[in-house]
């Protein structure tokens, strides 16, 4: 496995912020909010975190994989990926769709 891309599995992400806080390059940005859901049979509504945005700034990322390691829910994983190049530095910041769809296209 070539460690050339860190992919996000958004369904597994609980917005716990561990990856964001452990990242030595401060290159992960995560935005989320809490919602209350009432499950059938439950006495009280449950609070869950809903992921709004997840960005990795690949112009800064050093591919250390600490985020992959610390994620308790395996929501981040190493992935094979084509070359990440761009004519604009801003475009190297990838959001949820790019972080996941790139993974699907590589498979």
């Amino acid at each position: 496995m070539i460690h050339s891309f860190i992919a996000l599995l958004p369904d597994k992400c609980t917005s716990c912020m561990l990856c964001v806080r452990e990242c030595p390059a401060w290159c992960i940005h995560l935005d989320s909010h809490t919602e209350e859901v009432t499950e059938p049979g439950a006495r009280r509504p449950k609070k869950i975190n809903v992921l709004d945005s997840f960005d990795i700034d690949y112009s800064l990322c050093m591919y250390c994989g600490i985020c992959v390691d610390v994620c308790p829910f395996d929501a981040l994983e190493w992935d094979q990926h084509r070359a990440l190049i761009s004519d604009s530095r801003v475009d190297l910041t990838l959001g949820i769709t790019q972080l996941t769809s790139e993974k699907d296209s590589a498979n």
């Binding site: 917005s15 912020m17 806080r21 992960i28 940005h29 909010h33 809490t34 919602e35 609070k47 975190n49």
Partner: peptide
């Protein structure tokens, strides 16, 4: 970026922050 916390939102508006603990990098 780690200072952010999940926000409590109602109808898309922020109505509160669940944690008052201040995080330090």
């Amino acid at each position: 970026p780690g200072a952010a916390e999940p926000e409590i939102k109602q109808d898309g508006r922020k109505v509160g922050n669940p944690s008052r603990r201040r995080q330090r990098p």
